[in-house]
Amino acid sequence: MKILVGYKRVVDYNVRIQVKPDGSGVVSEGVKLSPNPFDEIALEEALRLREQGVASEVVIVAIGAADLQAHLRNGLAMGANRAIHVSTSDAVQPLTAARVLLKLVEKERPGLVIVGKQAIDDDSNQTGQMLAALWDRPQATFASKVEIGADKARVTREVDAGLETLEVDLPAVITTDLRLNEPRFIKLPDIMKAKSKPIEVLELASLGVSSGDHLKTTHYAPPPKRGKGVMVKNVADLVAALKNKGLV
């Protein structure tokens, strides 16, 4: 079985993003970029399934500008067999990403697609579900445990009420939650090995998908600040302050 993994590049999770004073965007110059943490978990899960003999090949996909190659090399160094770079200079929204992934699914015919449940830049939490819809296949979102059987997957999901287990027929789309696994560290020899692994470049337009904006972002603003509060000296002062506000 082949596994296709969505592998997006985002602003590193440690960066405290700043909104430009004119509200036209966020400051991106010189900001550290990293693989989306949820997509790293997706790749790790695919690699583990390959190591278990469940999968035979792991293919990573990223959509974006020409400089994504180094990012994809990172995923190849982690252990993916090969990479597909769908090239576009436009920002891509989830519906477009899902349409691109559908084209790749039709071409690659994977038994499983694993993507992060959300990218930590736009926090949309949509692409996996949208792909499953367009593909007319099952989705198992927010996965914290994945077991693959014959033509079926059993997936435990982190939902508000607790842990829900679903059984889905394959092929299917799984989106990863935080506790599915802990991604491996990349070792130096793996970085060397990754240099010879293939990256296929496809122009987004050549897939017959337009990157047209579905939602137009007209303004960026910083979030309202909470006023800095007061430090209390002891428990008695805290209780008095809370009583004063009618909270206890």
Partner: peptide, 17 residues
């Protein structure tokens, strides 16, 4: 979060999260 992107994609529209 699980349901609505599936609805949006089937309708061919973006979703506002």
């Amino acid at each position: 979060k699980d349901l609505m992107p599936r609805v949006a994609a089937l309708l061919g529209v973006a979703q506002v999260s």
